[in-house]
């Protein structure tokens, strides 16, 4: 089975489903909030000029057909300041029909990840995202920690 990761923050997430001969980019803000009718640009390996541009469907999907092996880049942009980038490595086996369907998932604005087509599903699961609750607790702890530090500092001075 394919491993889909979920996230709850407001950042842009792009999942790339590789099913030769095509790749489907699924762009979303969170599990239940697809980037509907958002702009998508696909960049071929080593190219600065878009290979293909268009808009996602109401479910945030966009399909393209790679024509060469290498690292393909997908940029999703809703025109409202939300932008995400994702990369996927397309190998030669993609074009020979030996490749199985797999998924690559990224969830960052500018940081870029790569997913190798040869990675098995165990590896796909090995870099699971940190649960949202942990992130919230971590962030609040940081804020309270800084607050406590400055409060103590100020109290000691006065």
């Amino acid at each position: 089975m394919l491993g889909f990761k979920t996230a709850g923050a407001h950042g842009v997430h792009i999942e790339l489903l590789i099913h030769p001969p095509s790749v489907t980019a699924k762009a979303y803000f969170s599990k239940n909030a697809p980037m509907a009718q958002s702009g998508i640009s696909v960049y071929a390996p080593g190219s600065e000029k878009p290979f293909q541009t268009g808009n996602t469907d109401p479910q945030g999907n966009f399909v393209f057909l790679p024509d060469q092996a290498g690292t393909w880049k997908v940029v999703a942009d809703d025109g409202m300041g939300h932008k995400g980038t994702s990369q996927v490595e397309i190998t030669k086996s993609f074009f020979t029909g030996d490749e199985q369907m797999t998924v690559s998932d990224t969830h960052q604005h500018e940081h870029e990840q790569q997913a190798d087509l040869h990675e098995d599903h165990h590896h796909e699961h090995s870099h699971e995202e940190i649960p949202m609750l942990y992130k919230i607790i971590f962030g609040i702890s940081l804020i309270f920690g800084i607050t406590g530090f400055f409060y103590g500092l100020k109290r000691r001075k006065s």
Partner: peptide, 25 residues
């Protein structure tokens, strides 16, 4: 300072409540 910390924590968490609206969030 404590008031700043508590308000900051509220601001930090509240942004996680997002509403899909007109193709954006």
């Amino acid at each position: 300072i404590p008031k700043m910390g508590i308000t900051g924590a509220a601001l930090f968490v509240i942004s996680l409540i997002h509403i899909p609206l007109a193709g954006t969030s």
